[in-house]
Design a protein around this nucleic acid. Structure first.
Length: 574
RNA sequence: GCUCCCGUAGCUCAGGGGAUAGAGCAUUCGCCUCCUAAGCGAAGGGCCGCACGUUCGAUUCGUGCCGGGAGCGCCA
């Protein structure tokens, strides 16, 4: 049930009836809530096209709308606005229809198969704050796509095949470390050490590169060491993503694309796309219309090792054969935009995106950086990269401090559980309340505050609703039919529900979870005002009380669905 | 240097050819004998970076400039 679509259809039909083009009938949410709920500005551009007074056109259309019971007022205003107010009866009926529907009349789209690539952690490296955004934004997009009816496959796409593996293997060799006995903690220490050494020690860097090439070319001993490292790492990664509440359908890595890489090279060779350059193999991906310099994409380094673009192509081929998707989404850092432009072009040139009649759409949805208060990428106090587990630990610890200030009776276990949920919500909403593509500043105090656009604010709203509903159940007071709103607060709340459908479609179109956040804060704010101004259980009028309870139930269902789309859990108390 | 993104209230950010540009925080002032006050209300606060252009109309579109960020073949 998309109110904007419905109203646009209605008004467009009236424009047509008056001899104008349907496209002028677009209805938007009013920019002047004091005057109306919805508005149509189409008479203004129509006036130009048809050389008429816009107010006259608006009047012609408005006249045809008179008598439509959905509206309590249909007015025109200079220079040519059509202003619409929904009637209280219609609002109540609409809410009743939503409540009667399992998915609240929220839209289902035409089903597509979508692979979402939103992890990208490196094996042998602990998760750090840089992995947070990909995980929670990707997870939210995954949930949203699935909710809207698509078939979605989430793939973590671990980096387990590149130079970082060679670095770790070379470092372990140098130390004489036993791969079979290596622990997660060892790995967490080995990689940074190896990475640092490769920058100053040229011989070591060369050795690491050689080990990378050997791994990729199937050296059995190296492969055995590699497998050990990988297995240990994966268990750590599963724990890390588990703590975030982020799941994947496939725990594939670059190595799983390895069998496809020779085929990718064959395809490129057959198409005559491979070219030697400075001892390396490259594909030219520049187009005549390019405004920026577009260097060729590197497929094989001069030492014979593959680079990540190569494995990305192999992965694409794997996804095509395993899932035959309509779309493949890459949720990664902004800084990889250029890389993906190259890969996507190369894939298109190779013809590997063609699948029957359709062409697989590869789409990169980049996101900005999480910065510290200094506006620079978030670091620990000593300037190092902060581990994700440390970040989560400190957020949950701070959340627990807040939960412990609450005088609501809760057991220790309940407090810890609430703190975990509040902390994770603070992280997720703190991140996703901003548009995906923007950088934002990580501010724990602000994210954990109960006032403002925060996770805890949204959770608190749901908690107090559920508290009332629980009391109603205990007192055996049943919800009833939603009555037409009698007050502004009630009407405002009812008006927020029809906006959800449009918000979800916009969030999906832009791949922007922030649009889901916006509508959540809108509903929560309106509800909290309603809650403050009205008695519910103490309401003396029985049918009014039943109506308000139904309104609480409906609000709770909207909040629950929307929060779940963002991966936010609701504690039982707080 | 070239390419892309961004510049909106003291701060963090929405919005986007049309009416009086919106939230949240912060500040000030109010609201619990009552369903969770981790809540609600009110007030102040803006040359929408600058200039030119397109348009009946520009904060929104275009061009240039200034300021910030990122990227530009053997890392991922």
């Amino acid at each position: 049930m998309n109110i904007l679509t419905t109203l646009t259809e209605t008004i467009s039909a009236k424009f047509v009836e008056r001899g104008y083009e349907a496209s002028y009938g677009t209805v938007t949410v009013s920019s002047r809530p004091d005057l109306c709920h919805y508005q149509c500005n189409g008479a203004l551009p129509a006036a130009k096209a048809y050389r008429k007074n816009p107010l006259v056109i608006a009047g012609e259309v408005a006249e045809l709308l008179q008598g439509d019971a959905r509206f309590s007022s249909i007015e025109t205003a200079p220079p040519g606005f059509i202003n619409l107010r929904l009637s209280d009866q219609y609002l109540a009926a609409l809410a009743g229809d939503m409540a009667a529907d399992e998915r609240l009349l929220l839209p289902l789209m035409e089903r597509k198969t979508i692979v979402v690539d939103y992890g990208g952690p490196n094996v042998a490296k602990p998760l750090h704050v840089g992995h947070l955004r990909s995980a929670i934004i990707g997870d939210a997009l995954y949930r949203l796509a699935r909710f809207l009816g698509h078939t979605v496959i989430g793939d973590i796409h671990m980096g387990d095949w590149g130079l970082q593996m060679g670095l770790v293997i070379a470092e372990m060799e140098g130390r004489g470390a036993d791969a079979a006995a290596v622990s997660l903690d060892d790995l967490n220490e080995i990689y940074p050490a190896a990475s640092a050494r490769s920058k100053t020690d040229a011989a070591f860097a060369e050795k690491a590169a050689a080990r990378t090439a050997a791994l990729q070319h199937g050296d059995g001993d190296i492969r055995a060491v590699w497998k050990q490292i990988r297995d240990v790492s994966v268990s750590g990664l599963k724990r890390g993503y588990g703590a975030l509440g982020v799941t994947f359908d496939r725990w594939y890595g670059e190595s799983d694309a390895e069998p496809y890489v020779p085929r990718v090279k064959d395809i490129l060779r057959e198409r005559g796309l491979l070219r030697e350059s400075d001892g390396a193999l490259v594909v030219d991906v520049a187009l005549p219309e390019d405004k920026e310099p577009m260097p060729p994409m590197l497929v094989e380094k001069s030492n014979g090792a593959d680079v990540y673009g190569t494995t990305d192509l192999g992965t694409l081929l794997q996804r095509k054969e395993e899932f035959d998707p309509d779309e493949v989404w890459y949720v990664t850092d902004n800084r990889q935009a250029f890389h993906f432009r190259q890969v996507f072009r190369c894939a298109k040139l190779s013809g590997m995106l063609n699948s029957g009649e359709k062409e697989i759409q590869c789409l990169h949805f980049p996101f900005g950086t999480m910065n510290g208060k200094d506006g620079k990428p978030y670091k620990t106090r000593d300037g190092g990269v902060m581990r994700l587990s440390d970040l989560i630990g400190s957020v949950v610890e701070n959340a627990l401090r807040k939960v412990n200030e609450s005088d609501v009776p809760m057991s220790g276990e309940e407090r810890r559980e609430a703190a975990r949920m509040l902390g994770m919500a603070a992280l997720r909403i703190g991140d996703m309340q901003n548009h995906r593509t923007k950088d934002y500043i990580f501010d724990m105090e602000r994210f954990l505050a109960s006032e403002g656009k925060t996770g805890p604010y949204l959770q608190y709203t749901a908690v107090r609703i559920r508290s009332v509903l629980a009391k109603a159940r205990a007192a055996e007071i049943a919800a009833g039919e939603i009555l037409p709103p009698a007050t502004d607060a009630e009407r405002d709340l009812l008006l927020s529900f029809p906006l959800v459908s449009d918000a979800l479609l916009r969030a999906f179109a832009d791949k922007a979870p922030s649009a889901v956040c916006d509508v959540l804060f809108d509903i929560a704010g309106r509800f909290n005002r309603f809650y403050f101004e009205h008695k519910i259980l103490q309401c003396p009028d029985e049918s009014l009380r039943a109506s308000r309870l139904a309104l609480l139930e409906l609000t709770d269902r909207f909040l629950t669905i929307l929060l779940e789309l963002l991966g936010v859990e609701i504690p039982s108390h707080m």
